[in-house]
Design a binder for these strands. Sequence first.
DNA 1: TTATAGACCAGAAAACGAAACGAGTCGAAA
DNA 2: TTTCGACTCGTTTCGTTTTCTGGTCTATAA
Lengths: 193, 193
Amino acid sequence: MRESDKDEIIRAAILKAAENLFQRWGLHKTTMEDIAREAGKGKSTLYYYYQSKEEIFDTVITTAIDSIINKAKDSTEGIPSAKGKIRNYIVTTLMELKHYGSAFTIVRTEIKRNTGFLEKLRKLYEFRIQGHIREILVLGMATNEYTFADENELTLAVTTTVGLLHAMELYLLLENDDSAVIEMAAKLIANGI
Amino acid sequence: MRESDKDEIIRAAILKAAENLFQRWGLHKTTMEDIAREAGKGKSTLYYYYQSKEEIFDTVITTAIDSIINKAKDSTEGIPSAKGKIRNYIVTTLMELKHYGSAFTIVRTEIKRNTGFLEKLRKLYEFRIQGHIREILVLGMATNEYTFADENELTLAVTTTVGLLHAMELYLLLENDDSAVIEMAAKLIANGI
DNA sequence: TTATAGACCAGAAAACGAAACGAGTCGAAA
DNA sequence: TTTCGACTCGTTTCGTTTTCTGGTCTATAA
């Protein structure tokens, strides 16, 4: 057991080193040797812990996204109304994304370089976000805040809400918007459903 | 007078030629000689009518955007409710944008190549769109559909609505979404304000 | 067996000089 | 007033060489 603990520590160290370098230099300018040096290991050693550079990058990104989604989810706890939950979920997601801001320069660059990249990312978290939103909307039906004729309509509402969220993420990522608009947009969506 | 009429005809012919080629080949693969050949003129002659290639391109794009905005505006005529107007304005804008679709491949490419391009475009139409939305919201106050505490709140609502519209445009341009979501999103925004 | 790293490879990317291209100018001519 | 051929000069493209870098293999040490 102590063996695998040590294993995890080194894996985490590599990840941390990679994250630092990715944030500073982006994916393409960061070499495996850079990461190895930063982690105080030989280059070959990295391949003992990770299959490829891509796996390292994916793990870094996934971790970041996980953190955002978890914070968004957490921000809905303790809020009684569904509308409030939706509002918080959206605001938190966007604010966190904005906060990661500079770190996500990488993402911005990567989006432009490779259109399929977003597609790939989305698959990783789309499902979870839709689950969260659906959960909230279902709650909203119980509290009479929202009404949906049937399962189809509920699904459409979920899709639309998440779609709008994505649209705003993209907007925030590629352009730069200020917080007042984020707040208002979130409230607007929450009330509009 | 007949002189300037003839002038306008040739200018229009050049524009039409340019539009065809831009749509087929994009801005960068279309040369001034291509346009001249298509318009049946010498290359130098183009410079008698337009200052630069950029001016030609801008004019083509502006014309297209004008058409979209006008159709959006028209789509609100005859609708009594402000909510209906908002909904139609958004749906029409997005559907038209989608309709121009292939033509706007250029725009898509241009956006990726030059981030400042969107900025520039936006300045051309931002003001008009905000004017239209504001007009509708003011009407919505008269019909008691919408309530705003003061001028500031109204302005924020306008900004947010237009911001969301832009976000969806970008999303539509860079990704591909289906009409059902557009409809729902428009309704959602209209009701949420 | 586990963990590490140096030596090595093949293909990708960078560097670079030469050639081609294309936006824009100018002067002449109709 | 309108048109265009000839010219320019900065940019892009292209073919080639060189460097770089992700990934593998093998040796070695604990």
